[in-house]
C-alpha cells in the first residue's frame, strides 16, 4: 500500500491506496505540500471500490473543458457522492474519510482531490475559494469574480506596480479558520498558472471585481459581503441544505473578520494603486 502525507489549508491529509497515490503525487504542485506525519485531520482513500448508489442527484456540471460530465448527489444514509462520468467516483460520509475509485485521467483526478478537500474542509472551516491571491508585506489580497472579470489581470497589476509583492495562488487558494484566525493558504490547485506555495497569510481584504470604465472601490456591508463571497465558494455545497448550513457559517465567520470590497476596475496601474491604498492604507 502506498501513502503520502500533505499539509493543505493548515490540515494534515493522508492519501493512501495503490498506484493512484503516485499518480496523485505526480500532479503539478502536489509535492510542494508534502509534509511530515502530524495529527491527521483528513483521510483520502484512493483506489477504493465504490458501488454505484441510489442517489438524489442535486447538481450537474462539466469539467475538463466540457469533456467530463459530473453529478453530485446524496444517498439515503446522508452520504455524498460524485460521479465523474466514466472516469470514476467519489464517496464521502461526514465523520469518515473520502473514498475515491481508481482513476486514469489526471485532470479528473486533480478535480477529485479538490472535491475531496472541499467536502472534508467544510466541516473544519477550510474552504477553497475561486480567486487570484497576491501577497504584499505579509498580507494577502484576494481577487474574486466570475471568469473573465480580470482576477489574474488585477493580481498581475499588483506584481508589476506594487513593491514587495508575490503571487500566492491563481485559482483556488483555501481560506481556513483556526480559532479566531482567518488566513488564506496556497494550494495544489492554481489553474493554468503553476503557482504552488506552501504558505499562509492573514487577509487584508477580499475584492469582488467587475470591469468598469473607471476605477472605483467601495467596502461592502455584511449582507453585500456575504452575497459577494458566496458565489466563489464550491458550487455543489450550495445545493445541499447541510453543506449550505456549514458554508453560511463559514462565510459569516470570514466576513466578520475580513473586509470585503466591490471594485470596478480598468486593467491599468491606477487600479492596482487604488486597491493597494484602500486595503493597505498604512503604506
Amino acid at each position: 500500500m502506498a501513502q503520502a502525507t500533505l499539509s493543505i489549508g493548515g490540515h494534515t491529509v493522508i492519501l493512501s491506496g495503490g498506484s493512484s497515490v503516485d499518480m496523485a503525487m505526480s500532479l503539478p504542485g502536489m509535492k510542494v505540500f508534502e509534509c511530515a506525519e502530524a495529527e491527521v485531520s483528513m483521510q483520502w482513500h484512493l483506489d477504493s471500490v465504490i458501488a454505484a448508489m441510489e442517489c438524489r442527484w442535486i447538481h450537474e456540471f462539466d469539467v475538463s473543458d466540457g469533456a467530463v460530465h459530473c453529478r453530485f448527489g446524496v444517498d439515503a444514509q446522508g452520504g455524498y457522492h460524485y460521479d465523474f462520468g466514466s472516469c470514476g467516483r467519489l464517496h464521502y460520509m461526514e465523520g469518515d474519510g473520502v473514498y475515491i475509485s481508481p482513476m486514469s485521467n489526471a485532470s479528473v483526478m486533480r478535480f477529485a482531490l479538490w472535491t475531496a478537500f472541499a467536502m472534508m474542509g467544510m466541516a473544519v472551516g477550510a474552504v477553497p475559494v475561486h480567486s487570484s491571491v497576491v501577497v504584499c508585506e505579509g498580507k494577502a489580497v484576494m481577487c474574486l469574480g466570475e471568469s473573465g472579470t480580470g482576477k489574474s489581470t488585477h493580481t498581475r497589476l499588483w506584481l508589476e506596480n506594487i513593491d514587495h509583492t508575490h503571487l500566492l495562488n491563481d485559482d483556488s487558494p483555501i481560506i481556513a479558520i483556526h480559532g479566531d484566525k482567518v488566513r488564506v493558504y496556497g494550494s495544489p490547485w492554481s489553474g493554468k498558472t503553476h503557482c504552488y506555495r506552501q504558505e499562509s497569510f492573514p487577509i487584508a481584504g477580499l475584492l469582488r471585481l467587475e470591469q468598469r470604465k473607471e476605477n472605483t472601490i467601495r467596502r461592502l456591508r455584511v449582507l453585500e459581503a456575504f452575497a459577494a463571497l458566496q458565489p466563489s465558494c464550491p458550487p455543489s455545497m450550495a445545493k445541499d441544505e447541510h453543506c449550505l448550513d456549514l458554508l453560511v457559517q463559514f462565510i459569516s465567520n470570514v466576513i466578520e473578520h475580513v473586509p470585503v470590497y466591490r471594485m470596478g476596475c480598468l486593467p491599468n496601474a491606477e487600479a492596482a494603486q487604488l486597491s493597494h491604498e484602500t486595503l493597505m492604507p498604512w503604506k
Partner: peptide, 10 residues
C-alpha cells in the same frame, strides 16, 4: 447559474 452576486433578503 453563475451570477456575480447571490441574492439575499434580510
Amino acid at each position: 447559474g453563475h451570477t456575480d452576486m447571490t441574492r439575499v433578503v434580510a
